[in-house]
């Protein structure tokens, strides 16, 4: 039995990670997902949250936003809008974004705007969570 599987993490603005990985854990639509080697072929979606993957016995962490995951026997591909390491996140900016989103939520908005702001707030809060945890 293989103990690792090939993983590719690609963000829209850069390739983030490529290589063998022992375990991957990401936020799915209805809860955390864990992928181990020899997982069955699967397609699922990703929402903003905390991404973890284990390489050479060491956990690595990142903050992700919306995307999807394609698990295949030969390779697992994770595509997301953004993937950021905890040390790359600008805390001040994330805090400002959070405040702005909260402020916007108090205003009267259309349904579409409301969803957008909510997603913004979600992303900002997730960034703050990941940084406060791993930095």
């Amino acid at each position: 039995m293989a103990t690792t599987f090939y993983l590719e993490i690609i963000a829209s603005d850069r390739p983030f990670f490529k290589g063998d990985c022992e375990m991957l854990s990401f936020p799915g639509l209805d809860g955390e997902f864990g992928i181990l080697p020899n997982h069955e072929a699967m397609v699922t979606c990703l929402k903003a949250g905390e991404l973890r993957f284990k390489v050479d016995g060491e956990w690595r962490y990142a903050a992700v936003s919306d995307g999807f995951v394609n698990v295949r026997p030969e390779a697992t591909v994770l595509l997301a809008d953004t993937v950021e390491l905890p040390e790359e996140i600008d805390i001040k900016r994330a805090e400002a974004e959070k405040l702005r989103a909260e402020e916007k939520l108090r205003q009267k908005q259309s349904i579409k705007e409301y969803y957008q702001t909510q997603a913004e707030l979600n992303r900002a809060m997730n960034r703050l969570k990941v940084t406060s945890k791993y930095r």
């Binding site: 799915g28 069955e40 072929a41 699967m42 397609v43 699922t44 698990v71």
Partner: peptide, 8 residues
């Protein structure tokens, strides 16, 4: 190729 699982 068989169908893959789609979750949920």
């Amino acid at each position: 190729i068989p169908h893959a699982a789609f979750y949920p």
